[in-house]
Design a protein around this nucleic acid. Structure first.
Lengths: 200, 200
DNA sequence: CTGACAAGTTGTCAATGACAACAATCGGGA
DNA sequence: TCCCGATTGTTGTCATTGACAACTTGTCAG
């Protein structure tokens, strides 16, 4: 029975989720180094050791946070693709890029964390599979585009590597830029991607 | 002089540089969270408060470290460009990419730190100008290429944005990949960049 | 009912970053 | 040359933190 918020019940209800949410706020507002388990515990109104029941480690909390980040980003990308389903390949890639960059702008610190964890060799297998799902999503419009003759080549590999690199790189480099400027710049980047550097 | 068993002079000689070097090693070996000022001090053979004379803050140390990273990377890129001076635009871009990715592979944690600091609004002006010099270097072969008719367009802006995004993104995404695979993949990416996604 | 397990609590410890007050060394000008 | 101020390093201290141990409270299956 959820007893409501009366005089703090002994059991929090969903401390795990509350900690992750708090962590994300703290991460965004004060940077990764300022993130303290004890502070999160205080915000949640529990004792300083309570987080230990849900996360073995500070690192475990960060891993869980990164994981939610990947899930959320992948979800948004999938939604963007579904919405642009019947448009051209270029439009779909642009939709993908817009979404990715949007995420990078309003969750810059989280994105950093996500890739920092991904690069760590001690990363959990869950994290790796989350990254895979993300990449699969990016590859989808490319495979479709090649099948429909809108994108050159028949091996999605090199094209996917290029597009995901450009996507991630652009997002990472422009995470601190104002959304309007980014939007404009982004359209140009997708155009250059499709038309290539070499003169036609 | 109470020169005990260790012939350690009261003054270290160049503590500042020693700390930065130690910090880079520790960063690479044990990750950013394990980096402790006191440990660096111990490694340098000085007291736990000595680093405070050279760096106001732990953050200040990290900023200085990031700065050396940018300087080193820019230096390598400039050298790579100079070496490839009389070749075609595509070769020069490939040289740039190789160098950038090489840096990312053997200094992955440092590169993360560099961009983490860059994204922080409280970053020092020195850091910003270091980033600018880096971008200028990347833009150079593009301007040259457009002037020589090897790269389409006359505004380097969009092309530079695309190339630097792809460069940085590819490096970031492949920092944990084996050098051989990366080398192969990299050549394909540069090819796709030049020829574009759209069928010719 | 009950007892095992999950979730939270208090207590403690070593490590850390920051700072203050003090000491040794160095270097430049009188 | 000598002295005095600026640098650089030292010891001491403090609050905060992450981790762990031992204990308590609530929950739920049988």
């Amino acid at each position: 029975m959820l007893d409501g918020m009366a005089d703090r019940p002994y059991h929090h209800g969903d401390l795990r989720a509350a900690l992750i949410a708090s962590a994300e706020r703290a991460l965004a507002e004060r940077g990764p180094s300022a993130l303290s388990l004890r502070e999160l515990a205080r915000e949640a109104g529990v004792s300083h050791a309570a987080p230990g029941r849900h996360f073995k480690d500070k690192q475990a909390l960060l891993d869980a946070l990164a994981l939610t980040g990947f899930d959320r980003l992948t979800g948004r990308l999938e939604h963007a693709l579904d919405t642009a389903e019947d448009t051209g390949a270029r439009t779909r890639v642009l939709a993908l890029a817009r979404t990715y960059v949007g995420f990078a702008i309003d969750s810059a610190a989280l994105l950093d964390l996500m890739y920092a964890r991904k690069h760590d060799s001690r990363a959990s297998p869950q994290l790796s599979s989350a990254v895979e799902r993300l990449l699969d999503t990016v590859v989808r419009p490319i495979i479709d585009g090649q099948a429909g003759g809108e994108i050159a080549g028949d091996d999605p590999g090199p094209v996917a590597a290029t597009v995901s690199a450009a996507l991630h790189g652009f997002a990472s480099l422009n995470a601190a830029t104002s959304p309007e400027k980014v939007e404009e710049s982004l359209a140009e980047v997708v155009r250059v991607l499709f038309e290539g550097l070499a003169p036609r």
